[in-house]
Structure formats: C-alpha cells, structure tokens
C-alpha cells in the first residue's frame, strides 16, 4: 500500500513539475525570440551574445525561478494532500501516509533536478555546437582553469547535494509543523469564533509565536549539539560538511517524529459535501 500510494502521489506531483518545466521552456524560448526580434541581440554583462548562448543563459536563469516555484507548489500540495478526504480514507496508517506525502515531494524535486540538468546540458551543447564565439570562449576558460577531477571535490559535491535535500526536507517538515500545530491549537479554541478573517489572524499570530518558540528552542539546542559532535568531527576535519549534515538529519528526524504525532492525533481531512 505504501508503494501504491507513493506512485499515486508521485504521478500527481510530477504533473505539476511538468507544467513548471513546460512554462520554463516556453518562457525561455519566448524571451529569446522576443529579444532578438525587437533589439536584435542580448547583452549579458558587457558581452554581446548569440541566439543559442542567450537561450542557454535564459534556461539557466529561469531554472532557478522554476525550482523556487516548484518548491512552493509542492509545499502547497503537501498540505492539501494531508487534508484530502478521498486519499485519507485509503487503508494505510496515518504515519505511512504522511511519510509517503513528504517523500514524494522530495522525489518530485529530484525528478525536476534531473530534467533541469538534462535541459541545461542540451541548451549548453546547442550553444557550444552552433555558436563559434561561445565555443572558443568556453574552451579558453576551460584551459585557463586547469580543471582536474579529484575524488575530494566529488565528495564535496555529493555532500552538498545531500545537504540540499535535507534542507528541502526540513523546510517541508517545518511548514507541516506550523500548519499542524496551529490547526491543533485552533481546534481547542471556542467554536463560537465563526469569523473567517479573525480565525486567519489568530492562525498567523499562532504561527509567529510558534516560529519564535522554535528559534528559541534551536538556540537552546545548538550548544548541546555542538559539544559532542565537535569531538567527533575533529578527526575528519577535512569534510566540514559532515557536521551540518548530521545536525540536519537530527532536526529532520525530530520534526518527523513531532509531525507524525500531531498528524495521527489531530489532523482530520476536510469535510465537504
């Protein structure tokens, strides 16, 4: 069941990712075409770029915006799926359901990154192949940089990727936490508050208080984290990314535990007839 729900949610989220990719592609093509039909060329810095290199630049530029947009969309999807009655009725435990939901979002981000990398690669190759200036420019800067592949750099890249994933996960979890806890607290307030905007205001207020409490909590926790880990990392000081990675893992696990508790205990799907 875990796998089948995963597949269902994944296809649902991939659809959104594909929309974002499509919009990005159209935007990159449109703005390239537009700038060449109106002004005839594109300036990047002080350099006058050809059609393919400018297309490459736009693809690269939009990929950041698209990634941000997709991240916001998946955040919204996560919280919508948490209260979706048709899905919540499925014969699966609440904990597995929540994990399925969060991990499909991470998988969607990974899928998006892969397609993005392929897209950027293709547009780079196009520019490299069909634009002489760009070709020679790339070659000279490549020779100047004296690029050598070594294992340590590779490990740092992998570690940064892991860190990025953990960070994305943590942000999803924090958002759920704020959503769940404010929801849970509101369900204990008197039901006589019918005013939607007042409820919204209370909710925002609660979220601020929760964020404040979180920051205080993390501040209180950091010395505790630092002390034992510092000893542990002294030996492997060359990989200084290991420390943030383990701290992120701890926080991720902590928030998963808290969120699972709140989700099991308080979060009901929306009722609509």
């Amino acid at each position: 069941m875990f796998g089948r729900l995963f597949a269902t949610l994944f296809t649902r989220k991939i659809k959104k990712a594909n929309y974002v990719l499509l919009v990005q592609l159209i935007a990159a093509i449109a703005i390239t075409v537009l700038s060449f039909t109106t002004s005839g060329h594109v300036y990047f810095g002080r350099q006058d770029l050809g059609v393919f290199p400018s297309f490459f630049m736009f693809v690269l530029f939009f990929s950041f915006i698209a990634a941000l947009a997709l991240y916001c969309i998946t955040c919204n999807e996560n919280e919508a799926i948490n209260v979706n009655q048709s899905l919540r009725l499925l014969p699966i435990s609440d904990s597995k359901y929540y994990l399925d939901n969060i991990f499909t979002s991470i998988a969607t981000l990974a899928y998006f990154a892969c397609i993005e990398a392929i897209g950027i690669g293709i547009s780079f190759l196009l520019a490299f192949q069909f634009d002489g200036t760009f070709h020679s420019e790339v070659m000279t800067s490549y020779e100047k940089s004296s690029f050598v592949f070594n294992v340590e750099d590779f490990i740092v890249v992998i570690q940064s990727l892991i860190l990025l994933v953990l960070f994305c996960l943590l942000f999803y979890l924090m958002l759920s936490f704020l959503n769940f806890s404010s929801q849970a607290i509101i369900s204990f307030l008197p039901g006589s508050i019918k005013n939607k905007s007042l409820l919204g205001f209370i909710r925002v207020f609660l979220v601020f208080i929760l964020i404040w409490a979180l920051v205080k909590g993390i501040q209180a926790l950091t010395p505790i984290f630092d002390a034992p880990f510092a000893v542990f990392f002294q030996s492997t000081s060359s990989n200084d990314l290991l420390e943030p990675i383990s701290i992120f893992i701890c926080f991720d696990l902590l928030f998963i535990a808290i969120n699972l508790f709140l989700f099991n205990q308080y979060i009901e799907p929306k009722e609509k007839k």
Binding site: N84, Q85, S86, L87, L89, P91, K270, K272
Partner: peptide, 11 residues
C-alpha cells in the same frame, strides 16, 4: 481496510 465509506469525492 474493511470499511467502505461513501466518500463525497471532494478529494
């Protein structure tokens, strides 16, 4: 698993 609830399909 053993309950079939008439879901309003609001999802």
């Amino acid at each position: 698993r053993v309950i079939s609830f008439s879901d309003s399909l609001s999802g």
